[in-house]
Design a protein around this nucleic acid. Structure first.
Length: 277
DNA sequence: ATTTTCTCCTGCATGC
DNA sequence: TGCATGCAGGAGAAAA
């Protein structure tokens, strides 16, 4: 489900919940089903009783820094968190993890498709973890992610520009929705070869990535199907989508028809007139 | 080595 | 109504 803006929205919501409740993790239970991978050994027992020191985002991962064992949560396609004030009434299908927080409050991880997962990590040395060692820079960090970086790393790449920017080894956080949106804003065809990007196009790409992700975060993410912030609120960026899911509709800028095509197995949307480079 | 396709899973829309 | 098919926001493994 979630790309960078959605994960960031959930991270902010979770942090707010822990700060407002301000109590150590109570009892923890999980479903008997595995998620994408089997649950870490003694997962519930290990995190029970720990105090949350911080929750932050790296790429599309949530990192929970605790007084004991640090852990991560990847949301896969359909992972989501919600806070239940009265668990007995609101248990839902596909609930997989229950974290009790004080009086009758339960933080619940729900994941319909079970592509998400949890694992223990050392938050102080994330880059050593198998989940983080290959990840590229954060798109909003101008020190490490900039036009020249894109230009240099795109040389001789035969893959499409769209697949290129979705490669988490290059830059993290861009998934299938925002890839189309970013390319619309930068005026680039998604099918173009990455290796042919000019310096100017790289500059436009970097700017578009920063703008689109920032604006989406400000809107609380994109709610296409069922995304909700941890507090339960919807995202509103879907109202600003220019191309994603708009095939057969008119371009909001020039009025020509939005096209749709599968690139590397993923649906891709663009305007043939506005995106001509 | 690089790039695309397959795979994991469930739910929903579509078409016959 | 039932059943088959395809598709959905991720990403590692396998295949090409």
């Amino acid at each position: 489900m979630p790309e960078l803006p959605e994960v960031e929205t959930i991270q902010k919501g979770l942090l707010q919940i822990f700060e407002s409740i301000n109590t150590p993790i109570g009892n923890v239970h999980r479903s008997s089903q595995s998620l994408r991978f089997p649950w870490p050994r003694n997962f519930c027992k290990e995190i029970s009783g720990q105090r949350i020191v911080n929750i932050y985002r790296r790429a599309k991962y949530l990192v929970f820094e605790t007084s004991g064992q640090d852990f991560i949560c990847h949301l896969g396609m359909t992972g989501n968190w919600r806070l239940d004030e009265n668990r007995a009434i609101t248990k839902r299908p596909h609930d997989h993890l229950f974290i009790e927080l004080g009086h009758k409050k339960v933080l619940i991880y729900n994941d319909v498709r079970r592509f998400g997962f949890f694992d223990f990590v050392d938050a102080g040395h994330l880059e050593l973890s198998r989940w983080f060692s290959h990840l590229g820079p954060e798109p909003l960090d101008s020190e490490t992610f900039h036009a020249e970086y894109l230009f240099v790393n795109s040389r001789k790449k035969q893959t499409s520009v769209k697949s290129f920017i979705m490669d988490q080894r290059l830059v993290v956080g861009i998934g299938n929705i925002y890839a189309s949106e970013v390319l619309f804003r930068s005026g680039l065809r998604p099918t173009g070869k990455a290796g042919r990007l000019s310096r100017e196009s790289c500059q436009n790409l970097v700017r578009a990535i920063r703008e689109v992700l920032s604006e989406a975060m400000a809107q609380g993410g994109t709610t296409i199907k069922d995304f909700r912030a941890a507090g339960g609120s919807k995202g509103y960026f879907q109202q600003k989508l220019m191309v994603y899911g708009r095939d057969e509709q008119e371009c909001r800028v020039c009025g020509s028809g939005i096209r749709k095509k599968r690139i590397a197995g993923r649906s891709t949307f663009w305007c043939g007139r506005c995106q001509n480079r």
